[in-house]
Design a protein around this nucleic acid. Structure first.
Lengths: 200, 200
DNA sequence: CGGCGGAGAAACCGATCGGTGTACCGGCTC
DNA sequence: GAGCCGGTACACCGATCGGTTTCTCCGCCG
């Protein structure tokens, strides 16, 4: 077999951690975590400082893939408006899954109410990267106040993911349409269309 | 002294529960809860079926006051637009407090990931009442699609409260301005003004 | 006055919490 | 073959979990 016949102990642990923390919340126990990862507690405590460290590392590890899942690649074409709306379309597509529980980074921030928690720091950075991507596209698109628009879009994004993840909202175009309305209001109109409200 | 020299056992317990669950999350222990409430565990288990029941009851008890804190009274004047924006202004004012942790009902839904949990049911009802209030005002204000607008406003409301409660956003007019932009887009313009973007 | 019910204090239950200590095992390199 | 090293297995630590039991006391009502 190849050298990848079995993922490293560290990778197995982080993968299981990402899934369990996301599905069951940060209160999941170390015992259950190690059991499903197929890793002994002894190994876990040799690789990490403790449960908090594992949580932070598992969030950090998923960050690049999470961003890639939501944002168009740098090579992909598209106007700034399209690139922004793409994020909301992707988020809505992901939220349709039965096991969707919202943005893992926002969920972590809400569950661990301590902003100084190492995992909170990682989560905050992930959210700031998305906000920065919004801002960059808003600037390119000639928005009146790109930083402000980016903050507005984050409101919609996090509201949508939290509500969809909690099962109290189905989205279904809601987030994308709302984002489009905000782009319109900020002067980032679609070239050939009138307003976002028109095609609702 | 009057008969209110001391709150009833039940009330003391629910008040402490509301505060501790909000501040520390639903993982707070029954032991700590009863200790700060000055109530014996024995009494708690006579009054309630268990911790889950206490949580649900504490959320339900706070719901009327929470709604009154956010929404203008039925006697208060104001156009539908003003009545909607008032909610966001109030939410922003509350979010300025140092111990603000976001909407307690959304937080409960996120933390207990189980939609069937009794407290999740209570929380969902509270959120639906706010959404219903938005919808009523949207109808009165002649919005193009009142139900859709109400869902959009909930996105902004929950996004704002979650982000402000997590300490990654300061609001500061952000939520109100965003809501106003959505009202504009839905045809609920302010009488004498041009657009919400103009006074940002 | 006597008694009765509500409530508190505290011990207790088995289970689990996050975290360690110890012993053992297989494979790797010298 | 010796030794080390990453890993597993497992018992163990004190603390806490949600929940129950027992006993006692206090205030209220008859």
């Amino acid at each position: 077999m190849a050298t990848t016949d079995k993922a490293s102990t560290r990778d197995r642990l982080l993968d299981a951690a990402a899934e369990l923390f996301y599905r069951d919340g940060v209160s999941i126990g170390v015992e259950a975590l190690c059991r499903t990862a197929g890793v002994s507690k002894r190994s876990m405590y040799q690789l990490f400082d403790g449960k908090d460290d594992v949580l932070a590392a598992s969030l950090a590890r998923r960050a690049p893939g999470y961003a890639a899942q939501l944002t168009p690649g740098p090579g992909d074409a598209g106007t700034p408006r399209e690139r922004i709306l793409y994020v909301f379309e992707r988020a809505e597509a992901l939220s349709a899954a039965a096991d969707y529980r919202g943005c893992p980074y926002l969920a972590a921030l809400v569950e661990l109410k301590d902003p100084a928690h190492p995992a909170s720091v990682v989560a905050r950075e992930a959210k700031e990267r998305l906000q920065g991507a919004f801002r960059t596209q808003a600037e390119r698109g000639g928005a009146e106040d790109p930083a402000f628009l980016a903050r507005q879009l984050m409101l919609v994004f996090d509201g949508a993911s939290a509500r969809a993840g909690s099962g109290i909202e189905t989205l279904d175009g809601l987030a994308t349409t709302t984002a489009a309305a905000l782009l319109d209001a900020a002067g980032m109109r679609a070239p050939g269309e009138r307003t976002a409200a028109g095609d609702r």
